[in-house]
Every structure is written in structure tokens, then in C-alpha cells.
Computed example of a mutant assay.
Amino acid sequence: MLRVVRLVLAVAITAAAALGVARLTTPADGGITRQLAFLRSELESGAAEDAQQQFPEGYFFLYALYGLTAVDASRLEDARWALTHLESDAGRAPFTGDMPLKYGVFYRGWVNWLRGGIAALSRDPGELRQFEQDSAEIAAAFDASPTPYLTSYPGQAWPVDSTVAMASLRLHDKVLTPKYEETTIVWLANVRAGLDPATQLIPHTVDADTGEPTSGAQGTSQSIINRFLPEIDADFATQQYTRFRTWFLDAPLGLGPAVREYPVGFDGPANVDSGPLVLGISLSATAVTIGAARVHGDASLATSLSQFGEVAGWPLATPWTKRYAFGLAPIGDAFLAWSKSARLWVAAPPAELPSRYISVWWRLPLLTLFLAVGAAPWLLRAAVRRRRAGSSA
């Protein structure tokens, strides 16, 4: 019996190592439909309400990311279902207070981006009219603002939120009659004038009244900013993405490519957005960067991050669903699904730049580890047999 147990354990260890090798070396872009099926089931079971207890925008983000992924997958009714929850009392609940743009730019920007994606798919006159109206209100708020960054909550401004809202105006100009080119030009000029001095990237937070940076660039916001900038201006997006890659891409202990929360050479505390930091790495920023890399034509980085995620995220797949980390944190599944389905809605896909290439050799340390783990039980069994044979002789 003991021999059977040892044999089963050895086979299990080797099979797990072989699975790690497979996940590290095969394409990792599939499974979006199964991820959406898992997320839909979780949302219907109250996952958004649970997430709201953990994150300030947990309810909102779960439905928003589900809806955006549904648009990327051309699942119109799923996207509409998500939008109805965002426009409910529960969806709007965190975004109260006196702000120039009602409900704040975080809420209005993400909702308008989703609404525009739905309208572009459906061409429904009512949905197009609502997209037109909401875009006009957002543009008017930008035109009247002394800074390029509108408030998300009373007295608080995050540039990433205004970036999403500005992208929604660019989507308007693609889907409907163009109106907001001048608003975009002015916004870009003001953004360029107020970059983080240390990295020349868009800052994480700014003073709500002046637009002056109050904290430097951080990975969680940079990954989203760089997901949306190509929709706004290709040249500026390329400049920012190149700097983002330089300052935030890392491989601690030689394992994987991953994304830091703070620039190389800087450290800081973890926060609710970054999640726990392991050797400075933010898992949430790393997941979202998959999408940013995809829309920038950085295929080698997108592939590498996805494959590393298939190993580190411990996905559990069935013929019907797919979830990561055993489905314990659906918000993480939502960000991954949105990132892996990423495509440009406004701009044309950029060409792949050879200078961005990630060498396949990044996999070598992990492959070596998996091969060593997979071989270890059999080497140990062989050593035990040799020792027993020597004792018998």
C-alpha cells in the first residue's frame, strides 16, 4: 500500500509539473466565453455586492468589465444586461456628492465607454441618442474645467478616470458625427504640460483644483491609462507606453515578466487597487497590462504575461466555465477576461515594433524548475532502489 501511495504521489507531482510546462508554452488567449459564463453565474449569485464590501468600486467594476468584455466578444445582450446594473441605484451609490459632472468622471467615463461600445454594435437609435447626450455632457465638463482631470469624487481626481472619459469622446466621433476634436487637442496639451517629473508619465493622482501631480505614476493606473491612450492619440500613446515599459516592467528573481506598482528604483505601500505587493509586483497591474500590450501591438509581452498568468493564476477550466485562483476573487477574473479580449474600438491596430520583443528565454527559469520538480520523485525512487540493492548485496 505504501508503494502504491508513493507511486500515485510521484505521478501527481510529475503531472502537475507537466501541466505547468504546457501552460507556459502554449497560447493563452482562449477561454473568454467560458470566463464570461463563470462571471455571469457569479454576478447572478451576488459577487458584485460581495466585491463592494472589499473595494470602493467593486460592484461597479465587476459589471463594467463583464459588459466591456461582452462587447469585445460581440455579445450585445450580455453587455446591455451589465449596463442596466451600472445605471441602477446600486451602481450609482458610491458616486454621490456635488461635482461639476454629475456622478463624477469615473462613473460617467466608464459608463459612456460601455454605452458607446453597445451603440456601435447595435446602431439602435435610442442607444445612439443616449450616447450622444452623455458625450455632450462629458465634453462640456472638460471644456469648462481649468484642469484636464475632472473629479471622480468630491475634491479628488485621478487622471486615469479622465483618460477613460476622453476615450469615450473619441469613440463618439467614430460612431457619430465628429464633434470633439478640439476638446481632445486641448486635453492632450494640458496633460503633456503636467506629467510626473520623475518618469514623464501621467501621474497617479492630482490636485483637483489645479491639476498638479500629488503622486507619481503607479502601475495600477498606468496599465489602464495605456489601455485607453491609443484610442485618443497614437503618437502620445506610443511615447507613454514606451516609458511605462521602461519604468514598470520587471522580472524579480528572474521569474516571468511582471509589472511593478511603483517605478524601478522606487518603493511604496500596497493599496486596495494594487493588492498585496510581492517583490514590488502588482498582480492587478500585471493582469491589466495584458490588454494594454495587446492594443499597443506588443504581442510578445501580451503573450508572455498571459502565459505567466496561466501558471501563477492556477486556472480551473471545465467545458463550460473557466476561473482563476479557484474563482475566489471574481474581480480578478473580470480584469483578466477584459485584458485577454482587448481590441481597439476607435484606432487602427498598430504595427508590432521589434524593439519591444520579449525573448523566449524568460521561460527558462520556470521550465527548469518544472522539469526539476517533475523529475525529482523518479530520481528519488531510483536512488532508494539503488540503496536497497546495495544493502541486500
Rank of each mutant, 00 (worst) to 15 (best):
T205W: 06
A325M: 04
L369V: 09
W110M: 05
L255E: 00
V5K: 15
A325E: 03
G117L: 06
Q239A: 12
L76N: 02
A167I: 09
Y180R: 13
A342P: 08
D89H: 08
I281R: 03
A342W: 15
L279Q: 04
L39M: 10
G327I: 15
A258N: 10
L195P: 04
R192C: 07
S284A: 14
Q200P: 05
G97F: 06
I225Y: 02
L201G: 05
V272N: 04
S88T: 01
R108C: 02
L19H: 07
R294Q: 14
S306W: 04
Y241S: 13
G268L: 11
L101H: 12
L328Y: 06
L62P: 00
L367P: 08
A234C: 02
I185T: 14
L83H: 01
Y149C: 08
F142M: 09
P125N: 08
T238W: 13
V71E: 07
V164N: 10
V191P: 08
L62F: 04
A312C: 05
W338P: 03
Q130H: 11
R386E: 15
A383Q: 11
N190L: 11
A140W: 12
G109P: 01
R108Q: 15
T33K: 11
D250F: 05
D209R: 13
D207P: 00
T289S: 14
Q240K: 00
Q54V: 05
P276I: 02
A198C: 09
S359L: 15
S223R: 04
N226M: 05
W378G: 01
L62A: 02
I232E: 01
Q35A: 13
L171G: 04
F326Q: 07
F244C: 03
Q54P: 01
R363P: 02
S341E: 12
R260P: 03
D207A: 05
F61P: 00
D207H: 01
Y262D: 11
R227N: 15
V384T: 08
S145A: 14
V278E: 11
Q200S: 13
V288Q: 14
S145W: 02
E132V: 06
F61Q: 13
T25F: 01
T147M: 06
Y103M: 05
L369Y: 12
Y357C: 02
A287R: 06
L169F: 00
T184R: 15
L7A: 14
G91K: 02
G265C: 10
P257A: 04
S223H: 01
L121N: 01
L83S: 01
Q307E: 12
T318N: 07
S282E: 00
G390D: 11
A287C: 05
S88L: 00
L353G: 02
Q222Y: 03
Q130S: 13
R243Q: 11
P94K: 08
Q200C: 04
P354Y: 06
E137F: 00
